[in-house]
């Protein structure tokens, strides 16, 4: 029944949108941030998605040879990172990519990313197609979007 309703909803949504119109405005990418990297170390990008229903299928960036959707799982005290095939975005709830959970992994970086750099990401969704986002690079001591290691020395992370 739920599936039928979603299908119906999707059909209505599709009918409302003129053919060829991107659904980019329906998909919001919020609070993107990442930490600076060292040498050839990979990076993790954090952000939030609002909109949908849709599914994030993949990510690409000019700065990285590869970009993957990953999830950190802690099982019996052991932290593991595993690739995620796709991430569902449901209306009414933000889909969060946050430390210790889901993140976008940027691998094979062409050069280290420094604090103050901006990384452009292309997120590919099932329906919204390609949505681009600019990710500000923060210092290694950043713990959240807009948190500043220097100004926030010893202060709790802003979430």
């Amino acid at each position: 029944m739920r599936r039928l309703l979603i299908a119906l909803f999707l059909t209505c949504m599709a009918a409302l949108n003129a053919p060829g119109t991107a659904h980019a405005q329906a998909m919001q990418v919020l609070e993107p941030w990442m930490r600076a990297t060292q040498a050839d170390r990979p990076a993790a990008v954090y952000l939030q998605l609002a909109g949908g229903p849709d599914r994030l299928l993949g990510v690409a960036s000019d700065v990285a040879g590869r970009a993957e959707l990953h999830e950190t799982i802690v099982e019996d005290g052991v932290a593991k990172m595993r690739p995620v095939a796709g991430v569902l975005v449901s209306p009414g709830a933000r889909t969060r990519f946050a430390p210790g959970g889901m993140h976008i992994m940027l691998l094979d970086l062409k050069k280290p990313l420094k604090e103050g750099d901006v990384v452009r990401l292309a997120l590919t969704f099932e329906r919204a197609k390609v949505v681009t986002v600019n990710v500000p690079v923060q210092g290694m001591r950043a713990t959240g979007p807009g948190s500043d290691a220097h100004a926030g020395h010893g202060a709790p992370a802003r979430r």
């Binding site: 930490r35 990297t37 170390r41 993790a44 932290a79 990172m81 430390p99 992994m105």
Partner: peptide, 17 residues
Amino acid sequence: FTFCPDVCPTTLNHVAD
């Protein structure tokens, strides 16, 4: 490990904090 982009920086930041 230093190739750890998520858990390690997060933990070590909390330790530093």
